[in-house]
Measured scan of single mutants.
Amino acid sequence: EVHFESHGEEQAMRVVKMLKKRNLTVEVKVENNKWIITAK
């Protein structure tokens, strides 16, 4: 499981795309203006 924190939507979306290319399940949450990305 991979956790990634991002402060910007643009950066977060880039990471999500990259993770999805690896056929991982990606969950995105926004907490306290931080984008929290979890990949399994």
Rank of each mutant, 00 (worst) to 15 (best):
E1F: 13
E1W: 13
E1S: 10
E1L: 12
E1T: 12
E1K: 09
V2A: 06
V2N: 06
V2H: 15
V2K: 06
H3Q: 08
F4Y: 12
F4Q: 04
F4I: 10
E5R: 07
E5W: 08
S6M: 15
S6P: 03
H7A: 11
H7D: 13
H7M: 12
H7N: 10
G8E: 14
G8V: 14
G8Q: 13
G8L: 14
E9T: 06
E9A: 11
E9K: 13
Q11D: 13
Q11N: 07
Q11M: 11
Q11H: 12
Q11K: 06
Q11S: 09
A12N: 01
A12F: 07
A12C: 15
A12M: 09
A12S: 02
A12G: 02
M13F: 04
M13D: 05
M13I: 07
M13C: 14
M13P: 01
R14T: 05
R14V: 10
R14A: 12
R14G: 04
V15D: 02
V15P: 00
V15A: 03
V15Y: 06
V16G: 01
V16F: 02
V16M: 02
V16N: 02
V16K: 02
K17G: 12
K17E: 15
K17M: 10
K17P: 01
M18I: 13
M18C: 15
M18W: 14
M18Q: 09
L19A: 03
L19Y: 02
L19Q: 03
K20V: 11
K20F: 13
K20N: 07
K20Y: 04
K20D: 07
K20C: 13
K21T: 10
K21S: 12
K21A: 13
K21P: 02
K21F: 09
R22V: 11
R22T: 08
R22Y: 14
N23G: 15
N23C: 14
N23S: 06
L24V: 05
L24I: 06
T25F: 12
V26A: 02
V26N: 00
V26Q: 00
V26G: 00
V26Y: 05
V26I: 09
E27I: 11
E27C: 12
E27L: 10
E27Q: 08
V28C: 07
V28Y: 05
V28I: 12
V28N: 00
V28S: 00
K29E: 03
K29F: 10
K29Y: 11
V30T: 05
V30I: 12
V30R: 09
E31T: 05
E31H: 07
E31Q: 08
N32T: 02
N32A: 06
N32V: 02
N32G: 12
N33A: 02
N33Y: 05
N33D: 12
K34P: 00
K34G: 03
K34F: 10
K34W: 05
W35I: 07
W35R: 00
W35H: 01
W35N: 00
I36Y: 09
I36D: 02
I36G: 01
I36P: 01
I36R: 03
I36K: 01
I37S: 00
T38L: 05
T38D: 04
T38G: 01
T38E: 03
A39S: 04
A39G: 07
A39C: 11
A39L: 12
A39Y: 08
A39I: 14
K40I: 12
K40R: 11
K40Q: 09
